[in-house]
Amino acid sequence: MTVTQQVLTIAAVVVGTMATRFLPFLLFPANKPTPGYVRYLGSVLPSAALGLLVVYCFKDISFLSGSHGIPELLSVGVVAGLHLWKRQMLLSIAGGTICYMLLVQMVF
């Protein structure tokens, strides 16, 4: 690829990415009343989207081979356990991440 072609490729990716971010705001501008259906979606989608995002983190894990996703599941358990117990965001994140690093570096 020439430099121009590279720039055009990157530009195409930028435009594609930004389309997914800007589209809802362009379709439903703030100065016009948002349809009730879309407002309903806006109120129920955050929880659903966060659920999707958590699952998305597991998309490259193979449960049938390698470590079977055990370090991931154990560490998510640590994150959730710590968070339910202390509800300190940084503690839960650091605890789970350190647990995961120890598991993949020393055990699996």
Binding site: G16, P24, V38
Partner: peptide
């Protein structure tokens, strides 16, 4: 570039949900 654009749309489609969530 057209393929790159389409792929970016697909990989990032979840942003549509984020946008609708953040309208307000």
């Amino acid at each position: 570039p057209v393929g790159a654009f389409g792929l970016a749309l697909m990989v990032n489609a979840r942003h549509l949900f984020y946008g609708i969530s953040m309208l307000d």
